[in-house]
Each structure stands twice: as C-alpha cells, then as structure tokens.
C-alpha cells in the first residue's frame, strides 16, 4: 500500500521574477509503506524541490500529494500533522541545531507534536539510540560535538517524531568515509527496526545500490526512470551523462565486458563485483542474480 502518492506535481520557482523557472514538471510516483527508496539526480534536477512537496513545505503549483490516501492540502490547517508523518532531514542538518542540550534539540519535534513529557523523554532516548548518541551526550551542548555527531543528533530530531516516512537529503554530504558508513549503517538499521519507509537523496550510485530496494531517477525536473538498482543502473552510461557518480567498480566491469570477459556489467559494489567474478569463473558462490 502506498504511504505517499504524488500526482502530476508541477512547481514553478520565483514566478514573476527574472529567475522564474520550472523546478518540477508533471511528476507522479508512489512510495510503498516500509520501502527503502533511493532518489537520485544531478544538482538542479528538482530533487530538493520534490522532497519538500512530500511533507507540505512547498505547495505544488499544480498536482496533488497524498499521504495515507489523504490530499495533504485538503485541509491547510492540518499541514503540520503531515510534517510529523513525513519526516524530512535537510542537507547539512547540523546547521539547524539550536538548543542548549542535545536532549532538548531532539525533543523539539516531539514537543511541537504536543506529546506528554514522559512520551517525549522516551522518544528522545529511542531516537538517540537509533543514531548512536549515548546517554552522556544527551546533556551536552550540541555545539560541543564533532561534525558527524551533530549530524546524527539532527537526524535523531526527526526520527523522534516517529514518522511513517523518513526522507534524508544527501545525509553523507561532506563526511569522511568512516562518517559516511556510520550514518548509512544507522539509517539502514532504523529502516529495518522501525518499519518506516526511507527515502535517501544521493549522488552516489554505490550508496543507492547498497541500501535501496528501488531507485527513482530525476532528470530535468521529471522522472527519468524508476526500478530496482539492477534495472536502473543497467543504464550506467546514461546516468553518468546526467551527472551521477559511477562507482569505480562499475567502470571496471564495463571495461571487462569490453575486453570480452563474460560478466554482467551491472555491478555497483565491490561485494557484488567479487561475486560476479566468482560466478563467471565458475566459482561455488550461489544466490547471485
């Protein structure tokens, strides 16, 4: 069942200024309950605009968004409720922290939901656990933490609202490899344990292939294609042209194919690569598509 349904979304930025432009043009798609979706596309393809429509931060110029089968703009006054159901973590979310303590900052969302103090305290602890922030850090100022920790606190602030859909806009931007792995691992765990749908916006085919079960490719303000990672990334050449990061391992496999080695070039992670080569060599690894 779809938790989010977007119908024919069109959005025009800066109408009536010299910078007027269409940021979305007739975009339709659905997000299933509990799904892990990778949303990819180059800068300026409309990704950020699109996700801000899903929790009612932007109102479509045309088209409709349904959350739990209700048009979110049907009743303007309840638009805040939508934001609790569809949690959105912006790019570089650490720059939105403002409270004196980590605990208070994570509690900001639940507090706005009007929950009881006990409920808030419980959710804060749960969210902190999900992102790997220990009890001791909860009473610290968020500004004392390292960059990676700050980002995790900011993500916890959204998780604490227990949204049905968690959307993250480039959650690994600017982090070092260790930080990238840590954040993505935490999000993956959260997805599995909470059963919430997760959408990550990313430039990295590798990240998308590793975690998402479905990929939506946005290009020139519309949906270019959608499908499983294998289906979508079979068109790696085209995706590279529209500004995506093609993993080195994918390039290696394309070259292998060109050299006449009988391998499937649709490989995006090193593990898949090893498996594919073992298969091609007639190895004993099973369970490989």
């Amino acid at each position: 069942m779809a938790v989010i349904r977007a119908e024919n979304l069109t959005y025009v930025y800066g109408a009536g200024t010299p910078f007027e432009r269409k940021a979305l043009d007739g975009v339709s798609f659905e997000i299933e309950r509990g799904e892990f979706v990778g949303l990819i596309g180059h800068t300026g393809s409309g990704k950020s605009t699109l996700i801000q429509h899903l929790n009612g931060l932007l109102r479509p110029t045309e088209g409709r968004v349904f959350v739990d089968d209700r048009d979110i703009w049907e009743d303007e006054k309840s638009i805040r409720e939508v934001r609790f159901k569809v949690g959105l973590v912006f790019q570089y979310p650490e720059y939105q922290l403002f409270e004196e303590t980590v605990e208070k900052d994570i509690a900001f969302g639940p507090k706005n939901m009007g929950l009881s103090d006990e409920e808030i305290a419980e959710r804060v602890r749960e969210a902190a656990r999900f992102v790997g922030i220990d009890e001791e850090s909860l009473s610290k100022s968020p500004f004392e933490l390292s960059g990676g920790q700050k980002r995790r606190v900011a993500i916890a602030g959204v998780i604490a609202m227990r949204p049905e859909v968690l959307i993250l806009d480039e959650p690994t931007a600017g982090l070092d490899p260790r930080g990238r792995r840590e954040i993505l691992g935490r999000i993956d765990d959260y997805h599995r344990e909470s059963g919430a749908a997760v959408i990550i916006v990313t430039h990295s085919m590798e990240e998308a292939a590793r975690y998402a079960s479905r990929i939506i490719v946005l290009d020139d303000n519309g949906i270019n294609c959608t499908g499983t990672p294998a289906e979508v990334f079979a068109r790696a050449d085209e995706l590279e042209r529209i500004g995506l990061d093609v993993p080195m391992v994918t390039k290696v496999f394309r070259e292998l194919k060109r050299l006449g080695v009988a391998v499937d070039p649709a490989v995006y992670t090193v593990e898949d690569g090893v498996r594919e080569l073992l298969r091609a060599k007639g190895g004993n690894v099973r369970g490989n598509a």
């Binding site: 080195m248 290696v252 496999f253 070259e255 090193v270 090893v274 080569l277 073992l278 190895g283």
Partner: peptide, 27 residues
C-alpha cells in the same frame, strides 16, 4: 574500489597484483 576488488579477489585465491589502481588497468 579497484584495489578493494583486487584485494578481495586475492583473498579468494586469484593471482592478481594489488597496484592496478586505474579502472582500465584493473580490468
């Protein structure tokens, strides 16, 4: 990733060099 791939393959008994850094070299 090129080195990682070669490294993992070596662990599985492939006789490969580790220093083919470029994608084409690695392939």
């Amino acid at each position: 990733q090129t080195v990682e791939l070669l490294y993992e393959l070596r662990k599985r008994g492939f006789n490969l060099p580790l220093d083919a850094l470029g994608c084409d070299e690695c392939a």
